[in-house]
Nucleic acid binder design. Sequence first.
RNA 1: GGUGCCUUCGUCUAGGGGUUAGGACACGGCCCUCUCACGGCCGGUGCACGGGUUCGAAUCCCGUAGGCACUGCCA
Length: 438
Amino acid sequence: MSVRTRFAPSPTGYLHVGGARTALFNLLFARQHGGKLILRIEDTDEKRNTPEALEAITDGLDWLGIDWDEGYGKGGNFGPYRQSERNAIYEKHFAVLQAGGHTYEDAGAIRFRSPRKTVTVDDLVCGKIDFDMSNPVTHPDMTIRRPDGSWIFHFVNVVDDLEMKMTHVIRGEDHLSNTPKHIELYQALGAEPPKFAHIPLILNHEGKKLSKRDGGSSLSYFLENGYVPEAVLNYLCLLGWSPGENRELLTIAEIQELFSLDGINRRNAIFDLDKCFWLNGQHLQTMALERFVALSRPFIVKAGIVATTDEDLLKALTIVKPKVKHLSDVPAWIGFLFTEDYPFDPEAVEKSLRKPEALDHLRALGAALATLTEWTHPAIEARLKETAAAAGLKAGPFVHPARVAVSGKAVGPGLYEMLELLGKDRVLARFQKAEQLP
RNA sequence: GGUGCCUUCGUCUAGGGGUUAGGACACGGCCCUCUCACGGCCGGUGCACGGGUUCGAAUCCCGUAGGCACUGCCA
């Protein structure tokens, strides 16, 4: 039987990073076994569902590159894939439960009568766990249908996994305690339960469930703040899973190849934005320039930067790529290359242009560069160093004023690359302008 | 409260009877250097606690404590 896994979110908010990781693990497992990932929308609670939330989920999955094979938006042989459209199927299975004497009414709602036995959950991650369900006080019969006829999660979740022929249910550990109830349902329906794998939870810095207030709890945060999907994916898969051999910086292809349910540990993990940030910089550095350009473009456009030519933009991004950590920083790093009206950081001006000799150095450098015939990075560097040596100084005293004069900032791409890109005329003009700074 | 799960540097983790307990992020210092970054080097902090078992325990067992989840006519 070929593997079928699913991601079954409820469209009630945004796509949570925990949900994204669950989807990712399901995808990886399916791919490794030549199986399929199904997307099912669990929207039985009408009051809480919104179309925006549904869109946020599919947008988030698309952005991460979690491409499901079947389900909502793609179709398949086991649809419909929204629970709100599957009523007839639920009625059918509900009738089976009723006929078997497994249900009873309670204040208008319908409950499932537990067989009151010990249920063993044989989990692919957690191992064998026994749940003693005999005490109705500690394990009350679950409600499966509301008085208005709508369905409760436990029931529809089981019916759908059954109907959609799921072989493996990989989900958050918050469902571990629900699993014996689900198994009772499968058995009452005369069906074999799928294999279960419960993965550890993602917590915030206080060790509590990650909530909206925590930075990075929503996947959209990463998109908006200039993270790239491969870095987020890389970080997410490292939460609760390790490929061993001290490997951490992984491409999607490597993750795909190395992933295994065996490598998943059972500890909840605290979400650490710092490490995700680092991973982002690493992926930015190693990715192809074309991809960097494509990913940067929306941020550049949004910042209103208009590059003189595509070629110039490409050159600018080339010198920025090895150093920038967030795509959202790109505009600030290249903006001054495409306008004479670039802002000056007061602190940088104070530190590098207001020093007593700073303007003298800038003037000397300007004069030295004015006679340079070959305007290239190495030639500029050589000339600057000669100038510094002639003054009996290191390069620093010349570099810093030049950097601030030309870019307005203390931080940015390598100076010589910047100067080369700007061209001699603009560089000399900016040097002069810097002397007039208020 | 009940049930279940979990507990290795601040964080993510490797290690599953004999290791100077390894790596990464973060942090501090140094080197490189034009700032930042990258890279390199060094550093500190860790097996929750208490009992066993054993020649030997981070590793196995028991207990305690703490954390998390579930305990909904939410999912």
